[in-house]
């Protein structure tokens, strides 16, 4: 456990130290929020949504923030590989599973912090949180998204030689995961074939879970969301540790 803590500590220290990354990664969500939220708020009518479209996409933007931060945190292993620091960890008498866990928990922590910053900012923009349990539920779902997608990033990074493939992963894996997740639109109103695609996207359950926590309504049963996302998290951690164990320098 102390090894996991050691690796976690390093991730968090590095995150808090790089102010530019912290501020920079707030840019995209805030931009989307302003353009889509304020831009479409008056045009889009959301039946049964008290807080309008802006309230609807808020959980989506938070999920996006967590998603991007966590995948990036996982993929950062490639930097460690290129700058040589990974050797230092791999040659120590600790198991690789412990190292991988530490990275995952560290990445998830930074991702949740990032999500919470967006959440707090959105309070200033008019989001109302009705109850504290709902807030806790939202944090649980953010944590699960953080854990699963950091592990996902580690799995990818374990198979990559350098950062060249990063754009490819961003454009063909991460953006589709975000786009299909129902972060920006209600999945109930979709044509059946797209709807089934969104239901295959693990992030959908994360977005829906956070939405349930913050707004009190969701289109997927929160228990189902919790089940699916937990399952996905476990699967990703298993795949991630498996691939990380085989990493070679």
């Amino acid at each position: 456990m102390d090894i996991v803590y050691t690796i976690w500590l390093r991730s968090v220290k590095r995150y808090l130290r790089s102010k530019s990354r912290l501020v920079g990664s707030l840019g995209m969500p805030l931009f989307l929020f302003a353009v889509l939220g304020f831009g479409l708020n008056s045009v889009v009518v959301m039946p049964g949504m008290e807080q309008g479209y802006i309230g609807f996409i808020m959980p989506g933007i938070i999920s996006m923030s967590v998603l991007f931060t966590s995948v990036f945190a996982g993929i950062q292993i490639i930097w460690d590989k290129q700058f040589g620091f990974l050797k230092e960890t791999l040659v120590a008498p600790v198991s690789r599973v412990e190292i991988m866990f530490g990275q995952t928990v560290g990445g998830a922590t930074t991702a949740v912090i990032q999500g919470l910053i967006i959440l707090v900012l959105s309070l200033f923009m008019g989001l109302q949180i009705n109850n504290i349990p709902g807030f806790v539920i939202a944090i649980i779902f953010m944590t699960l998204i953080g854990l699963s997608f950091t592990a996902f990033g580690i799995a990818i990074a374990s198979r990559m030689e350098d950062m060249h493939g990063f754009q490819l992963i961003m454009n063909f894996v991460i953006f589709p995961i975000f786009g299909l997740s129902g972060a920006l639109f209600p999945i109930d109103s979709l044509p059946v074939w797209i709807r089934s695609l969104t239901l295959l996207d693990p992030l959908t359950y994360g977005v829906e879970g956070i939405r349930y926590g913050l707004l009190g309504t969701s289109q997927v049963d929160p228990v189902v969301s919790l089940g699916v996302l937990s399952g996905f998290t476990i699967l990703m951690i298993i795949i991630g540790s498996h691939l990380f164990r085989k990493i070679s320098i």
Partner: peptide, 18 residues
């Protein structure tokens, strides 16, 4: 194989904990 973002002490401390 050092972490450049960390201080010398932190690099040592990380190693000691590992």
């Amino acid at each position: 194989s050092l972490d450049e973002e960390l201080t010398a002490y932190e690099n040592m401390d990380f190693h000691g904990r590992l």
